[in-house]
Design a protein around this nucleic acid. Structure first.
Length: 224
DNA sequence: ACCCAGGTGGCCC
DNA sequence: GGGCCACATGGG
């Protein structure tokens, strides 16, 4: 079972090794949300192309996006892949924020994270990871994102007993407590785990045969 | 010519 | 609850 001290130590090591990540790269909160949907199971570079297209067409705001046809939107976000489902998902989200919050993110922010998480999870196309990405990076709510890299990472270093989403999420949130910089730290930790995962830990659970394991230890990112 | 990428929902059992 | 599948583009 994961100890609080262990996760904090790992966080500090990752931070020292990779430096601050300063996620999420975006000009507005709405852009973060759109990016969170577009990057689902997709390389960020591809999602970025779609975001640039949206920006060029002034579609990075709830109402302009709402007023765009399905066909146009599909064409504009095509580079992000899964463009038909993602078009629906973007539409589902804007319908929600316009209906419930008059299209204003600032009004969403007034609500508590548990309440918002439930609402977000009711939207078709927004699952746990996307919901938590929106909560953490767009709305700056205290939540931890568990994505594929995080599952691999925790499994690799045997940091939890059970490997389910909520278990890992709660464990990490508890480890960071409730301080001024907790949200900041949760943002950094997730970004660092992704950055680390892009280089290491790919062959989970057969990590003994993973050629990167040795290098990972050698570089002192993680001590086992 | 493969394999992967900052997931999700639907279906089956 | 878990196991499989479709969804799709672009880069290595």
């Amino acid at each position: 079972m994961l100890k609080k001290k262990t996760i904090i130590e790992i966080y500090q090591k990752l931070l020292k090794y990779y430096g601050k990540q300063n996620w999420w790269p975006a000009e507005t909160e709405f852009e973060v949300i759109v990016g969170a949907i577009l990057t689902q199971q997709t390389n960020w570079k591809n999602a970025e192309k779609a975001i640039k297209n949206l920006k060029k067409n002034f579609l990075l705001s709830p109402f302009t996006l709402y007023n765009t046809s399905i066909k146009d939107l599909e064409l504009i976000i095509k580079p992000s892949g899964f463009y038909k489902v993602k078009t629906k998902r973007l539409k589902n989200f804007v319908n929600y924020i316009i209906k419930k919050y008059n299209g204003e993110i600032i009004k969403m922010k007034e609500k508590k994270e548990d309440f918002l998480r439930k609402e977000l999870l009711e939207i078709k196309g927004i699952g746990k990871e996307t919901a938590d990405s929106i909560l953490l990076y767009a709305l700056s709510k205290k939540t931890f994102i568990v994505d594929t890299y995080t599952f691999r990472f925790f499994k690799r270093y045997g940091l939890t007993g059970k490997n389910n989403y909520e278990e890992i999420k709660k464990t990490v949130e508890n480890a960071f407590g409730d301080k001024e910089d907790t949200v900041y730290n949760l943002k950094e930790l997730h970004a660092l785990i992704v950055e680390h995962g892009k280089n290491f830990c790919k062959k989970i659970p057969k990590c003994t045969s993973c050629p990167l394991t040795k290098e990972c230890k050698k570089k002192g990112v993680i001590n086992e």
